[in-house]
């Protein structure tokens, strides 16, 4: 099996993507609500990723 090298950002985006898909699929009642919830989860993941990234950069000096 080939070895994969990803940056922190790429790995975290992939993690966010698949987690959001599952969270969207298992919640809510209709497909449109599920889609909206999945997209919202992904947006929150990305916002937290970028926010924490900047926080660590600024905190580290």
């Amino acid at each position: 099996m080939p070895k994969m090298n990803l940056s922190h950002f790429e790995a975290a985006i992939l993690f966010a993507l698949f987690s959001s898909v599952v969270l969207g699929v298992i919640t809510k009642r209709t497909d449109s609500e599920r889609l909206r919830y999945g997209v919202r989860c992904f947006a929150y993941f990305v916002a937290a990723l970028i926010g924490l990234g900047w926080l660590m950069k600024l905190g580290h000096g």
């Binding site: 080939p2 994969m4 790995a11 599952v22």
Partner: peptide, 21 residues
Amino acid sequence: GRGALLLASVAIMFLLGLMMR
């Protein structure tokens, strides 16, 4: 449809984990 999405998400995530050793 939901089963396929769950299968794909979990399987891809597991495979990526293996490929990242």
